[in-house]
Design a protein around this nucleic acid. Structure first.
Lengths: 162, 162
DNA sequence: TATTGTTATACTCTATAACTATA
DNA sequence: TATAGTTATAGAGTATAACAATA
């Protein structure tokens, strides 16, 4: 029996599940698009031994040498404890170092290594290609408008909370 | 010492972490907005004993009574094993039932209970209010454009993959 | 007292492999 | 052989509580 023939035998309402109710929400479409993006990004970052968050942290450290973990956690909008493993991994990969801050012996100044800067350049390039594919159906104006709208969603909430 | 005064004493590059490189990517803004949405949605759904995925599944089951788990997993773009716990939870909450399909004893027809339909109505209303707040800075045209663009991102990838 | 980094822990979302009972 | 649901397991991304060292 062909797949089409099989489908015809299935009960009508169960034949194809409709998500029409949910499709009207930005939140639902946001979740779906995010999932697609994350799965694809993971694949792109795998050759570098990176995942989404270690990639993000590496970019922030190269762009902001000397930043502390708490500042990084703040910038990534996450809790401090979750930074520890991320920084551990980047250090183990030899991409960054934890330098002691002489004026505050509680803190670490996070700095990229030469290797870290090289991997940064390669990874950003790979992610840029990934982004191009991801948004291939959007013209530049739409792409910018989406970025702007997503930021509005984020900022809006941040204002209301803290 | 005031917070502003403290900030002035910190080393310049570490003072404020810039994510300018990442902000140019749709992917990064997507992730940030998604995180905000998810945290807020969890709070909204908590009074119903629901989380993001159980809410999604409940809506799909009420809108598509009789659907099987595999179909639901397909609609939610997730692997079948991950549906089990979601359906278990909805069943334990008394919101849905697993009815045996007479013509295929391997499968379950998922159906909402009366309580499930009531919670559905209340939860969708609460999520609608949440969505309104989330997108309060976007006019209706922009909101629709964002939904359309997010869907393009998702569909684009789906075409390339399967 | 407050902050930095840390440990411990738990919850949620996701994926893969392999099993059972059916078909 | 293939499919529906399941079990077991692992990897990511989150959050909270509490601690030691330092400010």
């Amino acid at each position: 029996m062909t797949k089409a023939a099989r489908n015809l035998q299935k009960p009508a309402p169960a034949n194809r599940v409709s998500d029409a109710t949910l499709r009207g929400f930005v939140g639902y479409n946001l979740k779906r698009a995010f999932n697609v993006m994350r799965a694809d990004l993971s694949r792109v970052l795998q050759p570098f031994g990176l995942r989404m968050l270690t990639y993000t942290a590496l970019v922030l450290i190269v762009d902001n040498p000397g930043a502390r973990q708490a500042q990084l956690a703040d910038a990534m909008d996450m809790e401090r404890p979750n930074m520890v493993d991320i920084i551990d991994q980047l250090e183990r990969l030899g991409l960054i170092v934890r330098d002691r801050v002489p004026t505050d012996r509680r803190a670490y100044a996070l700095n990229p290594t030469d290797k870290g800067r090289r991997v940064y350049a390669q990874a950003v390039e790979a992610v840029t290609r990934h982004e191009t594919l991801l948004t291939s159906k959007l013209d530049e104006t739409t792409r910018r408008m989406v970025i702007s709208a997503l930021r509005q969603i984020e900022i809006d909430h941040t204002e209301g909370t803290g």
